[in-house]
C-alpha cells in the first residue's frame, strides 16, 4: 500500500514537473511558434489548431528530450514536423483567406512608425514565405528566426551543405517574390 502511494506521488510529481517545463518552454518560445504557425496556416482557426498541435506534440515529445540539442532547436524541430503533418491533413483550397496581416501584432519599443514599418515588412515576408515550396520555406523561416546553418541542419535532419543550397535558393526566390509584391503595391 505504501509502495503504491509512493509510486502514485512520484508519477504525479513527474506530471507536474512536465507541465511546468512545458509552460516555461511555451512562455519562452511562444512568438517563434506563433510565426511558424502563421507561415503554414492562413486563417485564425487553422492557426489555433496548429498551435494546439505544436503544444500537444511538445508535451508528448518532451519526456524524450535528453538535452542533446538546445531547447529552441528541439522545439522548432517538433513544430516543423507537426506542420508537415498539418499540411497533409488540410483539405485542398482550405484557408485561402489570409487574415494574419490584420491580426498580427508587431512591437518595436516605443516607436509606432518603426513598429508599423516592421509589421508591414513582416506581413509581406509572411505572404512571400507561404508562396515558397516547403523545403525552401522551412529553411527560410528558421533562418529568419535567427538559427545558424548548423542549427537548421539539426532541425531538418539534413547536411549543412544542403541547408546552404536551400537557403540560397530560398533567398533568391524571396527576393523575387518581395519585388513582385512591391511592384503590385505601386500599381
Amino acid at each position: 500500500m505504501t509502495t503504491d502511494t509512493a509510486r502514485q506521488s512520484a508519477v504525479s510529481a513527474q506530471a507536474e514537473a512536465l507541465a511546468a517545463r512545458l509552460e516555461r518552454l511555451l512562455a519562452e518560445h511562444a512568438r517563434p511558434l506563433e510565426r511558424i504557425a502563421a507561415s503554414y496556416a492562413r486563417t485564425v482557426a487553422e492557426r489555433e489548431d496548429l498551435l494546439q498541435d505544436f503544444a500537444l506534440a511538445l508535451w508528448t515529445a518532451l519526456p524524450t528530450f535528453r538535452g542533446d540539442a538546445s531547447e529552441r532547436t528541439f522545439l522548432l524541430k517538433v513544430a516543423h514536423n507537426r506542420a508537415v503533418t498539418f499540411l497533409s491533413r488540410r483539405a485542398p483550397n482550405q484557408g485561402s483567406v489570409d487574415d494574419y496581416a490584420e491580426s498580427a501584432e508587431a512591437s518595436s519599443g516605443k516607436n509606432p512608425a518603426l513598429a508599423y514599418e516592421r509589421k508591414e515588412r513582416g506581413s509581406q515576408l509572411l505572404a512571400a514565405t507561404r508562396a515558397l515550396p516547403l523545403g525552401h520555406r522551412q529553411v527560410l523561416t528558421l533562418l529568419l528566426e535567427g538559427l545558424s546553418h548548423r542549427e537548421i541542419a539539426d532541425v531538418l535532419g539534413v547536411t549543412e551543405n544542403n541547408v546552404a543550397v536551400r537557403a540560397n535558393r530560398a533567398r533568391a526566390a524571396l527576393r523575387v517574390l518581395l519585388g513582385d509584391d512591391q511592384r503590385k503595391g505601386k500599381v
Binding site: 509552460e23 512562455a27 516592421r118 509581406q124
Partner: peptide, 18 residues
C-alpha cells in the same frame, strides 16, 4: 529578420496553450 521577428507576441498565448 527584423521584420519577421516583429510579428507575433499575442498576450497570454503560452498559458492558454499549456
Amino acid at each position: 529578420r527584423q521584420g519577421w521577428q516583429a510579428l507575433g507576441g499575442r498576450a497570454d498565448l503560452a498559458r492558454s496553450l499549456a
